[in-house]
Simulated scan of single mutants.
Amino acid sequence: MQEPDDLSRMADFLYGNGVHLDGCELEEKAAMAEVRRRYPHKPFCLVRRWMLVDLLVAEQTLTGIQASGRLPLLVFAHEVVFDSAGRFAPGDWVRSSLCITCPEDGFFETGNTVYVLLGDGCTKQADYKLLFSIH
């Protein structure tokens, strides 16, 4: 069997099926109030059509990630709803930095932002080179 080409792998990552996950079930205004309550001093970004990406990395890279207090996990979202810091416009896509706390009921924390994962999403695995080739 032939290896899938880069374009096929990219299409599968972006649009293929993943394992279903429930996100934040709050309405947008309630989600904003809750993220401000939980993380009062941190910028936040509400997103839809999201996936949690478990990065496939070499053992040495994994060791370095874990030593820095992060996990090899990030958010990729097809749709930004609202960004409190104004970095992303509604409708933009976004790829987060690495996770520092595991997602809890749709709240995903990185070193500089909390992503509120609105509605349903999924989880997938991806090679970091593939994921970071998206611009």
Rank of each mutant, 00 (worst) to 15 (best):
R36H: 14
L98D: 00
A67C: 15
G106H: 07
I100E: 05
P40F: 15
G106D: 10
R9I: 12
P40K: 08
V114K: 02
Y115W: 12
S133Y: 01
C24T: 08
T113D: 08
K42E: 04
D12T: 03
L26S: 06
G86D: 04
F107E: 00
C24R: 04
L117K: 06
R36K: 15
L117T: 10
F82M: 05
V114P: 00
G121I: 01
L131M: 14
D22Y: 10
S68A: 15
F44V: 12
L7W: 02
G16I: 03
M10L: 09
L118Q: 10
P72Y: 05
E104Y: 11
K29Q: 14
V75W: 03
R9C: 03
T101Q: 07
E104G: 04
S133C: 05
A31G: 14
E59V: 07
L7M: 04
W93M: 05
Q2K: 12
T101M: 11
I100L: 04
C24D: 03
D6T: 07
G69T: 05
V19G: 07
D22Q: 09
D54A: 01
E59M: 00
K29M: 11
A11I: 11
K124R: 02
D83W: 12
G106L: 13
D92C: 00
E28W: 15
G69R: 09
E34C: 13
F44I: 03
C45P: 00
D12Y: 08
F108R: 03
V116G: 13
N17F: 01
L118Y: 07
L74K: 12
L7E: 04
A77Y: 01
L98N: 00
G121L: 06
A126P: 01
K29N: 04
Q125M: 02
T63S: 13
S97L: 09
L71D: 09
P90M: 04
M10R: 14
T101K: 10
R37P: 01
R48C: 09
A67N: 02
K124W: 01
M10F: 11
C24H: 05
R49C: 02
G18Y: 03
H20A: 12
H41C: 12
P40Y: 12
S8M: 06
P103E: 13
I100C: 08
V19Q: 14
E28T: 07
E79S: 13
S133F: 15
G111S: 15
L55Y: 07
G119E: 06
T113K: 10
L130R: 02
E79D: 01
A85G: 14
D22S: 02
V75T: 07
R95P: 05
R37F: 13
Q66P: 04
A85M: 07
L21H: 10
E104P: 05
